[in-house]
């Protein structure tokens, strides 16, 4: 059995659990609990441990989809979790107070993994709040010294959006992959 994994990360409520569930062939294993006081205003349920989903490619190949718990700002296990991962999908909730702070935080936390592999960034909840715009995110990452990265508006509930975001991650790893 050939096993690969893709890591999903991002702040509370960005849509990690949702994204994994739309891509997964199984009902994802998730440990959502009622949110603590801190996040209750934001959402009722939050993931307190890892999200897990699975894409079966064929009889002998599978892609594991792991999501980091949003409430947790950092965990020493992240390094372990990313070992052998194909790349990172970062979801940023545009409706949060300071989405750029979230962007800085997660790019920094996963810096070495991103440098080793690839990243694609999905901006969620733009239907609820349209500013900042995608162009603003591009400007931020350029100012931070990152190269050109795939950043796209997504709705984590939409399979086509999530599919395209993951495709952009995989083509970034190797654009020559063809049918």
């Amino acid at each position: 059995m050939s096993e690969h994994k893709i890591i999903f990360t991002g702040p509370v409520g960005a849509g990690k659990t949702t994204a994994i569930s739309v891509l997964s062939d199984i009902v994802p294993i998730t440990t959502d609990e009622m949110a603590s006081d801190m996040t209750k205003d934001l959402k009722q349920q939050t993931t307190v441990a890892m999200d897990y989903g699975l894409m079966r490619i064929n009889e002998s190949e599978r892609v594991h989809l792991y999501g980091t718990p949003g409430q947790e700002r950092f965990n020493f296990m992240w390094e372990v979790l990313t070992q052998g991962g194909l790349g990172l999908v970062l979801l940023i909730d545009n409706s949060r107070k300071e989405p750029f702070q979230d962007l800085y935080f997660f790019l920094d936390a996963f810096k070495s993994f991103i440098h080793r592999t690839a990243i694609s960034i999905g901006i969620t909840r733009m239907d609820e709040k349209s500013h900042p715009e995608i162009d603003d995110y591009h400007r931020e990452i350029t100012a931070m010294g990152w190269p050109v990265l795939p950043i796209m508006e997504v709705d984590a509930r939409e399979k086509e959006d999530m599919s395209m975001l993951v495709q952009s991650l995989l083509y970034t790893i190797d654009p020559t992959v063809a049918e």
């Binding site: 894409m55 490619i57 064929n58 190949e61 993951v166 495709q167 995989l170 083509y171 790893i173 992959v177």
Partner: peptide, 10 residues
């Protein structure tokens, strides 16, 4: 392998 995942996603 990437090709097969991409095919699946598409």
């Amino acid at each position: 392998f990437l090709r097969r995942i991409l095919r699946r996603l598409q």
